[in-house]
């Protein structure tokens, strides 16, 4: 059994808590419920012939009122950098957070997750943004906590990047 700590980080209201709820409990709520501090959840799953126990640290989103405490990332095997695809500015916030995480705990595996992919009419992220991320060597994918599309895949992509030891 492999136990790992994974953090969810990003701007406020990008859907971090919803992604955890979808991944852990397969549920979704339209209502926005702000997270204060850290919310802990656990998820066990099998990847190949290995059993993984993930401890998910859902960190409060960042805005002008609250800034994430990068010290919470310590001991983390990886993190999901969540962006709201319908709010372009949340990508800038994610990039800023990623840099601060590197400064605080060094380069640990992460995946950029563009949430709310079901809201195609309101999508604000242009293709050149994705190309830019790929050019930087960042892994990214689109997902929707509402429909569940891409959510498991995001966590599995992150797991694949994490060392098993």
């Amino acid at each position: 059994m492999i136990q790992k700590k994974i953090c969810m980080v990003g701007a406020f209201a990008v859907g971090k808590t919803s992604l955890v709820a979808r991944f852990v409990e397969s549920i979704f709520s339209e209502k926005y419920h702000t997270t204060v501090g850290v919310k802990i959840a656990k998820k066990a799953l099998n990847v190949g012939d290995q059993e993984w126990h993930l401890i998910l640290w859902d960190l409060a989103g960042e805005d002008e009122f609250l800034q994430i405490r990068t010290s919470y990332l310590r001991g983390s095997a990886g993190y999901l950098l969540v962006v709201d695809g319908t709010r372009r500015a949340t990508l800038d916030t994610a990039v800023s957070i990623q840099q601060r995480i590197v400064d605080a705990v060094g380069p640990i595996p992460f995946v950029v997750l563009f949430n709310k992919s079901d809201l195609t009419n309101e999508w604000e992220i242009a293709n050149d943004a994705f190309e830019g991320l790929s050019h930087k060597g960042w892994s990214w994918l689109k997902a929707s906590a509402k429909t569940g599309e891409g959510v498991d895949e995001a966590f599995l992509t992150l797991i694949a990047k994490m060392p098993e030891g």
Binding site: F12, A13, Y32, H33, T34, V36, D63, F65, L66
Partner: peptide, 11 residues
């Protein structure tokens, strides 16, 4: 939570 929620909802 109420204060942050309110501020963020308005935002």
């Amino acid at each position: 939570q109420s204060i942050v929620q309110k501020a963020r909802e308005e935002r």
